[in-house]
Simulated scan of single mutants.
Amino acid sequence: MGVFSKRVRHAAPPSAADSNRSWRRAGRFRSCAGRRGGQFGGMVMRRVFCLCGVMLLCGSTILPAQEAVPEGTKARWFGHAFVYLVSKSGVRIAVNPFTEGTVDYPLPERLPAEIVLISSEAPDYSGGQHIFGLPQVFRSLAGVGANRANGIPFRGINTWRDAEGGKRLGRNTVYQLEVDGLRYVHLGTLGHPLSSKDVSAIGRADVLFLPVGTQELSQREILRNAELLEAKWIVPLAYGTEPSRRLGLRPLADLDFGKLAVKKHEASEFVFVKSALPEAPTVLVLKEPAGL
């Protein structure tokens, strides 16, 4: 052989026993790695879940539970013209929430709603930004016409805040809603006697939220509007109180309801039931919410 030649020894092929031992060692390695990987993955997931829990507790907004009652529609007066309805199925409707600072009633904290209805852009009627959740908001003119939201049919009727066709104070939207078999009407900040066309568009009211403090209408005109709508329950709103003193509204005590029956309720909320409508028109005076 040459100097560059090298004897090559060929290794013998592995026996069956050697192959089996190699596969067993590889299997033990994979099993161990799998167990460790599973333990590591489980630890990571547990930490992720714990972190998410802390974030939810510390940073989330927990909204109040729906306050539906099976008997009928719950209505709550938060002061001034702000009415909050909750249907039997739990749909929450905020009507004319006031903007913070316009009156000295406290705004409910983190109050959720599915629907927000605003009659005019007057600051004491247009505080929809204070309502939580992701409500559908209908602002003044945008609410005019036939609408439906969350299964609630309602209609907005264009009216005025003064008797001069809105030349001084602008437009107002009257809202008529059908909830749990009853028809609710909120006159907003109506400032003129209703015409026959208005009455035809609004229709009969089972429950009428009636602004009685405006100086744009006489007492007689205010009560005539309620009479024209054939209201069964008449709920006076938006009248002069200590928290609303800056608005120059007429106090409720100055209003003479004449021969109408008057029921004073010892709470600021009331449940309206279709089977319990009064036979004759009745004024329902809700307890005034506490001021700031």
Rank of each mutant, 00 (worst) to 15 (best):
G248W: 10
R183L: 00
L252G: 07
H10L: 15
G34R: 06
M45D: 06
F40Q: 07
M45P: 00
P251R: 08
R148T: 13
R168T: 13
L208M: 01
G166N: 06
K197E: 15
S87C: 05
E279H: 11
L51T: 11
S60M: 08
V174H: 05
W23H: 09
K232N: 11
P64S: 00
L57D: 06
K287R: 15
L169C: 01
G59T: 04
M45N: 08
I93L: 11
P123W: 07
R21E: 08
E242A: 14
T73S: 10
V69H: 02
F82E: 00
E67M: 04
L223Q: 04
A276V: 01
I62S: 08
R47G: 03
G203R: 07
F132W: 13
I152D: 03
R9Q: 08
A75Q: 10
E221C: 07
I62T: 10
R155C: 07
G156C: 08
P112G: 00
I222A: 03
V273L: 01
G53H: 12
A33S: 09
V48Q: 12
M1C: 07
F154R: 13
G191P: 06
D18K: 07
P97C: 03
S244E: 01
L217G: 01
L255C: 09
L260R: 15
V144L: 10
G133H: 09
R148S: 12
P123G: 04
V8G: 03
L141K: 14
V69R: 12
R245G: 01
R46A: 15
A226Y: 06
G79T: 02
E67Y: 00
T61C: 04
G151H: 04
V271L: 07
I62Y: 11
G170S: 03
A231C: 02
K74D: 00
V83D: 00
E109K: 10
A205Q: 05
L63W: 06
F257M: 07
E269H: 15
G133N: 04
S119V: 07
R204W: 01
V48C: 12
E71C: 00
V144D: 05
Q176I: 01
P278D: 06
A276E: 14
V235S: 02
N158Q: 14
P278T: 06
R9C: 02
F98Y: 15
V44K: 13
Q136W: 05
G53R: 13
S60H: 10
L284D: 04
W77N: 08
P135S: 08
I62W: 12
A201C: 06
R139S: 04
P106V: 04
V262N: 04
R36F: 09
V69P: 00
R204L: 04
G191E: 05
E114G: 05
V116G: 12
D104M: 08
Q39C: 08
E266A: 15
L208Q: 03
W233R: 05
L141W: 12
V144F: 10
G170E: 01
R161T: 03
G156P: 05
L177F: 15
T73K: 10
N158S: 14
D162R: 03
S275R: 12
S22K: 12
L247C: 05
L169A: 09
T189L: 11
R24K: 13
A75V: 07
S195I: 03
Q176V: 13
D162K: 02
L223N: 03
E121N: 11
R25Y: 01
K88F: 01
P251D: 07
E100Y: 09
V285L: 09
V54Q: 02
V199C: 10
